[in-house]
Design a protein around this nucleic acid. Structure first.
Length: 501
DNA sequence: ATCGGCTCGCGCAA
DNA sequence: TGCGCGAAGCCGAT
């Protein structure tokens, strides 16, 4: 099927057919079903849909749906996604592409919309994403009445460029250094293709049953009170969408030199803060790499010949840029690799053998401190640094990178079993973190339990040979007083937060 | 302040 | 088969 399809701009390896239905050249439009890469720039899936629309001489219709009944659905995620939808609405309007934002108003209301539109389409193109509910959703989507394919716009390395899960960042990095160069010269488009026929006509019956979301909902003039969400989780004072992502990227690059020495300092705003935007697909790795390249005067021919697996020296950029790229590319795509190749990556059994063994040997150790979920959730433990980190997560939807590790280690220490610790981490992270439910969130959580890590001595209670971390040592190594003052206790609540609840 | 040792499994060189 | 090496650690010795 893809033999008749043009692949001028999108590499074949990123395209996957979900069924063997033939293209329908006399369809009314090509449908792009946007669910993971919620952006118009740097999006191979949108590029592919636009290529097909061009070939068939038909309009492109972009459907961006938002369900309300997925696990942990809550105001903060809805608001963040809606911000992005408003950006997409504007950008597609400028490009002359028809945009259909759909926001479910009751659980399951959106069921049937994709199939109904597919019935009129030359082809359906969707987002190939290995995390959360996507794999199951995509395998069901193959039954729509049209040719349906999904495109991998996850990162620099196509998911299908590897054939197995990697056990360590070091080995994965060495593979990347060998493999990435041949993928760096194919970049997605910087803006949606112009000049396609249009507008696409959405059938009346479809508009009637699934009315497009009101502009005032996207722009925030209408609130989320009427939607069936967990309103108790609250919103966060962070704007979503591609425009905010781009602004954040520019700010980050202005202070990139601080990244090297200060990214682990809880009180320094040295980290990129891009994780929520990457999670919802509001910005692409390629756009970030291009911005770095511009700042560093870098071109792909600067990469080293030898693949050593070392963290620095391969890209041929400044030390700070390379440290950031190791997060953005090595660690992020390592998480995607796990999600893609290990359907069990969210289950305890996917931990390495040595980790499960040592944790099992200490499963019966007494737990001097233990807290139930409500106490943890509210940040009411004996540990002020941990409480501050948890409060930051609950109120802001993000947590400082270094403290995120400590946060997980303490949950292991305070839980009745490592399996229970995993459940609690997943619950709190997915409930409150904007980048929760991301493959990277899972690799971060599993790292706390030994994934991608090695055993450490001495063998300790509860942890066994799992790497141990303590709040006392963290306080010794970094400045944390201001962080605790800012996020600890009731007076840490900001005006923004008070407004949001 | 800095250093080594602790411990396991991998991937590569031999 | 051996060996070097690893997301951010910890602890005690110097």
């Amino acid at each position: 099927m893809s033999a008749v399809a043009p692949t001028a701009t999108v590499p074949e390896i990123r395209i996957r057919a979900l069924n063997d239905a033939p293209f329908r050249p006399d369809g009314d439009f090509v449908l792009y079903w946007m669910t993971a890469f919620r952006r118009v720039r740097g999006n191979f899936a949108l590029d592919r849909a636009a290529d097909l629309a061009h070939v068939f001489g038909r309009p492109l219709l972009v459907l961006e749906p938002l369900r309300c009944a997925y696990p942990w659905a809550a105001d903060r995620f809805h608001r963040f996604i809606l911000d992005g939808m408003e950006d997409n609405r504007r950008a597609l309007e400028r490009a002359g592409v028809t945009y259909f934002p759909y926001v479910e108003t009751s659980p399951g209301a959106g069921k049937g919309l994709l199939a109904a539109l597919a019935g009129h389409a030359c082809a359906v193109v969707g987002d190939d994403w290995p995390g959360f509910f996507h794999p199951r959703m995509l395998s069901a989507a193959g039954s729509v009445p049209a040719a349906c394919e999904v495109v991998d716009a996850c990162g620099l390395l196509p998911l299908r460029a590897t054939e197995r899960p990697w056990p360590s960042a070091y080995a994965f990095r060495r593979m990347l250094q060998r493999t990435l160069p041949k993928h760096l010269d194919t970049m997605p488009a910087e803006r949606p293709r112009r000049g396609l026929p249009g507008p696409a006509v959405i059938p009346r019956a479809v508009r009637k049953r699934w009315p497009p979301a009101h502009g005032a909902l996207l722009s925030g003039q209408i609130g989320l009170e009427t939607l069936p969400l967990d309103h108790a989780v609250g919103t966060v004072p962070l704007r979503g969408g591609a425009t905010a992502a781009r602004r954040r990227l520019r700010e980050f690059l202005e202070r990139l030199d601080r990244y090297l020495d200060e990214r682990n300092e809880p009180e320094a705003a040295a980290a990129s803060g891009l994780s929520p935007y990457l999670h919802f697909g509001h910005i692409s790795t390629q756009e970030i790499l291009q911005a770095l390249a511009g700042r560093e005067g870098w071109t792909p021919d600067r990469v080293a010949e030898r693949a050593t697996g070392k963290r620095t020296g391969w890209w041929g950029m400044s030390a700070a840029a390379e440290a950031f790229l190791d997060e953005l590319v090595t660690w992020r795509e390592l998480g995607l690799n796990a999600a893609f190749h290990m359907p069990s990556h969210q289950s305890y059994d996917s931990l390495p053998g040595w980790a499960r063994r040592t944790l099992a040997e200490h499963a019966a150790d007494p737990r001097p401190n233990s807290y139930d979920v409500p106490a943890l959730e509210a940040g009411e433990t004996h540990d002020p640094l941990w409480n501050a980190a948890q409060n930051q997560l609950r109120r802001h939807g993000v947590m400082h990178n270094y403290l995120r590790m400590l946060w997980g280690k303490k949950i292991l220490e305070w839980s009745a079993s490592p399996e229970r610790a995993l459940e609690v981490m997943v619950e709190l992270n997915n409930k409150y973190a904007l980048d929760g439910r991301d493959p990277n969130s899972y690799s971060g959580i599993f790292w706390c339990l030994g994934r991608y890590d090695r055993p450490w001595a001495p063998e300790r209670p509860i942890f066994g040979r799992i790497r141990y971390m303590s709040s006392a040592n963290t306080a010794r190594k970094f400045r944390v007083k201001g962080y605790i003052a800012e996020h600890g206790g009731e007076k840490g609540v900001h005006v923004d937060d008070a407004v949001s609840t």
